[in-house]
């Protein structure tokens, strides 16, 4: 019995035991196969040999993943990507450079993309212009900060509060609410602009900043993303908290909220972009309540004489959201992985 086992375990010849012809054939075939794929028997190697062999193997597997890739295709697609990347980046780079160009360079012919001798003149002009303006510039700045802050914080809290029961519990009316939210993603907010204006004028909110802040609370994409993200929280966690005697609000605040950090960062960024670029629209008339973006747009609208300051303004408006995005990109991507719709 013991000898049989040895025979089976060792595939090479055991001392004193002759292998049958068939078995020899089989072994040869196996060796051929291994050679064909460039594989070797790992058990027969020395330590160093094994180490290099493993690296080689890993590289080969990596190459294997690219079996379906041709070099020509790789290069041409990469060139395509670069081309469109340039198309996408060109205006951004242009407006970045224009902000540092002296006036003479802005109107050079033929126009050039990069600045030759950068100055901060445009920014100085901008600050001069701000000092002259009717309403102190810090006021515009404060308005935008306040609108952005209040709208974002309110939305994140209210939307996540609603998203938690919608994602993790079933109760009468939950499916109706969520399907209405999904349907509301299908039309733009401009459609409801007219009745919203009427509602605001009835409520007396016209010409207050609440007219921009409060609708931001009910931003539908935010709730949608939040709900989709929360659906993957393990139910056991919530149940165990319930057994420990937490009520729903405590579960939401203490357990769910810390877990969905990527989602609320995403909501902050989406809302931030919206509110940062909001210029008050048709809701705010008073000059001292207008946000920053409105006054900057006024400067841009100044025409050819203000090209320099306008490009400085564009740089300011552009750089803030982009910085915020760069800082939180991985979190946003993580949230977006859950954005799928059935």
């Amino acid at each position: 019995m013991a000898e049989d086992k040895i025979l089976i375990d060792d595939d090479e010849t055991v001392a004193g035991v002759e292998l049958s012809k068939e078995e020899k054939k089989r072994l040869k075939r196996q060796e051929k196969k291994l050679k064909k794929f460039g594989l070797k028997d790992e058990s027969k190697m020395g330590k160093m040999e094994l180490f290099f062999y493993k690296i080689e193997k890993r590289r080969r597997i990596k190459k294997k993943k690219r079996v379906s890739r041709s070099i020509v295709g790789d290069i041409s697609l990469f060139l395509l990507l670069c081309l469109f990347g340039a198309f996408s980046a060109y205006p951004l780079v242009y407006s970045f450079c224009a902000a540092f160009k002296p006036l003479a360079e802005l109107f050079i012919y033929p126009p050039k993309l990069f600045f030759q001798n950068p100055t901060l003149d445009n920014f100085k002009d901008l600050s001069m212009l701000m000092e002259q303006s009717m309403v102190p510039f810090s006021r515009y700045f404060f308005n935008t900060i306040w609108i952005t802050f209040a709208g974002t914080v309110g939305h994140v809290i209210i939307a996540s509060m609603a998203a938690y029961p919608l994602a993790k519990h079933k109760f009468p009316g939950s499916t109706i609410i969520f399907s209405m939210v999904v349907y509301s993603l299908m039309f733009a907010s401009q459609v409801t602009a007219t009745p919203t204006y009427i509602i605001f004028s009835l409520a007396g909110l016209i010409d207050t900043q609440l007219a921009i802040i409060v609708p931001a609370f009910a931003y539908t994409l935010g709730l949608y993303l939040m709900k989709q993200f929360m659906q993957d929280i393990p139910t056991e966690l919530i149940e165990s908290a319930k057994i420990d005697g937490a009520n729903e609000f405590q579960i939401y605040w203490r357990i769910v909220m810390p877990l969905v950090k990527p989602a609320w960062l995403t909501l902050i960024i989406l809302l931030f972009q919206q509110l940062w670029n909001n210029d008050g629209g048709s809701f705010i008339y008073s000059e001292q309540l207008k946000p920053l973006s409105y006054s900057l747009n006024q400067i841009v609208a100044g025409g050819v004489a203000r090209t320099g300051t306008a490009s400085a303004v564009m740089l300011i408006m552009m750089i803030v959201p982009i910085t915020v995005f760069v800082l939180s990109q991985s979190q946003i991507i993580e949230t977006m992985a859950h954005s799928g719709m059935k």
């Binding site: 509060m161 939950s174 609410i177 009910a218 729903e248």
Partner: peptide, 21 residues
């Protein structure tokens, strides 16, 4: 408790989306 949590958003959602439509 779920309704308490959902209520603020739902009310705003109705005011700014459903009612205007």
């Amino acid at each position: 408790q779920y309704y308490y949590l959902v209520a603020p958003y739902t009310i705003l959602f109705f005011i700014f989306t459903v009612v205007p439509v």
